[in-house]
Lab assay of single mutants.
Amino acid sequence: VFVDDHLLEKVLELNAKGEKRLIKTWSRRSTIVPEMVGHTIAVYNGKQHVPVYITENMVGHKLGEFAP
């Protein structure tokens, strides 16, 4: 499973602090992992960042699938 390192670091850091804030990313190719559930990730679609709230059903899919 591929997840960009910088994105995973941000998610794990927020989980350690117990925070839930918006994470901006250009990494549409990253796979959604269970650690991301409950976070809102702003995924770049080529024009703007689209906020995507991550749920359990999204695990295993790519971030780009949810930012048309």
Rank of each mutant, 00 (worst) to 15 (best):
V1Q: 13
V1L: 05
V3T: 06
V3I: 10
V3P: 04
V3S: 02
D4T: 02
D4E: 09
D4A: 04
D5R: 15
D5Y: 15
L7N: 01
L7D: 01
L7P: 01
L8D: 01
L8H: 03
E9P: 01
E9V: 09
E9C: 15
K10Y: 14
K10T: 15
K10E: 15
E13C: 14
E13F: 08
E13V: 06
L14C: 07
L14V: 02
L14H: 04
L14M: 12
L14E: 02
N15D: 03
N15T: 04
N15Q: 03
N15G: 02
A16M: 11
A16F: 08
A16S: 11
G18W: 03
G18D: 07
E19V: 13
K20N: 04
K20Y: 10
R21S: 12
L22H: 05
L22R: 06
L22F: 05
I23M: 04
K24E: 08
T25Q: 01
T25H: 02
W26P: 05
W26M: 09
W26A: 07
S27E: 05
S27N: 04
S27W: 07
R28N: 04
R28L: 05
S30N: 02
S30M: 03
S30Q: 02
S30E: 02
T31M: 10
I32H: 00
I32L: 05
I32Y: 00
I32V: 12
P34M: 15
E35T: 09
M36F: 12
V37T: 12
V37G: 04
G38E: 08
H39C: 03
T40G: 05
T40F: 07
T40E: 06
I41D: 00
I41K: 00
I41R: 00
A42S: 09
A42V: 04
V43W: 02
V43S: 02
Y44W: 14
N45A: 09
G46A: 10
G46M: 11
G46R: 11
G46E: 06
G46H: 15
K47L: 10
Q48L: 11
Q48W: 13
H49D: 04
H49M: 09
H49C: 06
V50M: 10
V52M: 07
V52Y: 04
V52N: 05
I54C: 13
I54T: 03
T55C: 14
E56Y: 14
E56V: 13
E56R: 14
E56N: 14
E56Q: 11
N57R: 11
N57S: 14
M58V: 06
M58A: 08
V59R: 08
V59L: 11
H61W: 12
H61C: 14
H61L: 13
K62R: 13
K62T: 12
L63I: 06
L63Q: 00
G64S: 07
G64F: 11
G64R: 12
F66P: 01
F66Q: 06
F66Y: 12
F66E: 05
P68S: 08
